[in-house]
Simulated scan of single mutants.
Amino acid sequence: MVDAEAMTARRIDARARFLPVGDSAFAVEFGDRIDPGINALVHRTAALLTEARPEGLVETVPSFRSLLVHYDPLSTSAQALQRFIGGLELEDEAGQAPPRIWRIPVLYGGEAGPDLTEVAAATGLSEAEVIALHAGTLYRVYVQGFLPGFAYLGDLPEVLDLPRRTSPRVRVPPGSVAIAQRMSGIYPVESPGGWHLIGQTPLRFFDPAQSPPTLFAPGDGVRFVPVDARAHAAIAEAVARGRYESELEGGSA
């Protein structure tokens, strides 16, 4: 497998491998690890296929390091579609800045982040150091899944790399900001969950009445901004009244 950092613009078939998945799908695999460069190639390939709409293509499903391609076997074959995909050319995007960087206000610790003290003890850091590390990282939206609007945000600083909780919670409040392994995430709705809860944001990340229904898109950047209880309450009220615009670095959305 070609290292993503060493890739230059070339045909997809020179850097990926095709793996069969049943009789109407196959995977285009770009690597064997979670890596921003590899993930950028996955989403760029998906975008090119959406634009080109080759005959027989049904849909694509991106993951961290591969793209699942569903096709209609009555309209095309895996071999024909793989030849089409293999002939596409990509520019590497690993060194490029995210197209959008969202600023997400977070109230850390206390009732908003009941696991912050535990995380600090497990990592040998103070709570303030955990907050500074978490908020000081620019995250990439790798994929969305598990719940509508739940984005897997990487890469968490290595010192904060902790396994999931041994006892998952039955109910995690919406807006909970959490970490597990090298990922951070925000629960968009109330649900069970096994990640460590370190804060809470009043923003909404999934609204089926909106287009698109999710705030984030793959490839976006996310930066967490610590706020105090008063600011958190004010933002929550503005969100409830429909008067809050999610912030992007350089201006509002």
Rank of each mutant, 00 (worst) to 15 (best):
G110A: 15
H134Y: 08
P148K: 01
G149H: 14
G136N: 03
V119D: 00
A128C: 04
A151Y: 11
E118R: 13
V141K: 02
A135S: 15
P148I: 14
A121Q: 15
L147M: 13
G110F: 06
P105Q: 03
L116C: 06
G113S: 05
S126V: 11
H134N: 04
G149Q: 11
E129V: 12
T123W: 08
A132V: 05
L153S: 04
A120M: 07
P148M: 11
D115L: 12
R103S: 14
V130C: 15
D115M: 09
L107I: 08
L125F: 14
G124C: 06
P148F: 08
G109H: 09
T117A: 15
V130H: 05
P105I: 11
S126K: 07
F150C: 09
Y142G: 00
A122E: 10
P114H: 02
Y152L: 12
I101D: 00
G124T: 05
L153H: 02
L138R: 08
G113T: 06
V119W: 02
V143K: 00
E118G: 10
V130E: 04
A128K: 12
E129Y: 10
Y108V: 09
V141A: 04
L133S: 09
E118A: 15
P114F: 09
H134W: 07
V106W: 06
F146G: 01
G113M: 04
Y152H: 08
L153D: 02
E118M: 06
L147D: 01
L138G: 06
E111H: 10
G110I: 08
V143A: 07
P114W: 13
S126P: 07
I101C: 12
G136P: 03
G136E: 04
Y152I: 01
A120Q: 06
T123D: 05
G136I: 12
F146D: 03
G154H: 05
V143S: 03
A112K: 04
R140G: 11
E129L: 07
L133R: 14
A120W: 12
T123P: 02
A121G: 07
G149D: 07
G154F: 07
G136C: 07
G110M: 06
A151W: 00
R103E: 15
E111V: 14
V130L: 07
T123Y: 08
G113W: 04
A120V: 13
V106G: 06
R140S: 15
E111G: 15
Y139M: 02
Q144N: 05
L133M: 12
I101L: 15
P105D: 03
L138S: 05
E111C: 05
Y139S: 01
G110D: 14
G113Y: 06
Y139R: 00
G154L: 04
A151P: 03
L147C: 14
A122H: 09
A120F: 14
G109F: 04
L147N: 03
L133W: 13
